[in-house]
Amino acid sequence: MSYKNEFIKFMADCGVLTFGDFTLKSGRKAPYFINTGNYNTGAQLARLGGFYADCIKENGIEAECLFGPAYKGIPLASCAAMALSQKYNMDVGFCFDRKEAKDHGEGGLFVGRQPKKGEKVVIIEDVMTSGKALKEVYPKLKDAADVDITAMVITVDRMEKALDTDLSAVQQAYKDYGIKVYSIVNIGDIISAIEEGVIEGKEYLEKMKEYRRTYGVSE
Results as ranks from 00 to 15, higher is better:
2 S>Q: 05
2 S>H: 07
5 N>E: 01
5 N>T: 15
6 E>R: 11
10 F>Y: 08
11 M>G: 00
14 C>D: 01
16 V>T: 03
18 T>H: 04
18 T>P: 02
18 T>A: 05
18 T>F: 03
20 G>N: 02
25 K>F: 06
30 A>S: 15
33 F>W: 13
36 T>V: 14
38 N>T: 07
38 N>R: 14
39 Y>H: 07
41 T>C: 01
41 T>L: 01
45 L>W: 13
45 L>P: 12
47 R>C: 14
49 G>K: 01
51 F>W: 01
57 K>S: 15
60 G>R: 10
60 G>F: 12
65 C>W: 03
65 C>R: 12
68 G>C: 00
73 G>K: 00
73 G>D: 10
74 I>F: 08
79 C>L: 11
87 K>S: 09
87 K>L: 12
90 M>W: 12
96 F>L: 03
98 R>A: 10
102 K>Q: 12
105 G>L: 08
106 E>K: 13
106 E>D: 09
106 E>A: 03
107 G>W: 05
108 G>D: 08
109 L>D: 07
113 R>Y: 15
115 P>R: 00
116 K>Y: 04
121 V>W: 06
131 G>E: 05
134 L>V: 09
136 E>R: 13
138 Y>H: 14
142 K>L: 14
146 D>F: 07
149 I>L: 10
149 I>W: 09
151 A>D: 00
152 M>V: 14
153 V>D: 01
156 V>C: 10
160 E>M: 00
162 A>N: 10
170 V>A: 04
171 Q>R: 14
171 Q>L: 00
171 Q>D: 01
174 Y>W: 14
180 K>E: 00
181 V>Q: 02
183 S>K: 02
186 N>S: 10
187 I>Q: 04
187 I>D: 07
189 D>S: 07
190 I>A: 06
191 I>P: 06
193 A>M: 02
193 A>Y: 03
193 A>N: 03
194 I>G: 06
194 I>K: 00
200 E>Q: 15
202 K>R: 08
205 L>E: 03
206 E>T: 14
207 K>F: 15
208 M>N: 02
214 T>V: 15
219 E>T: 13
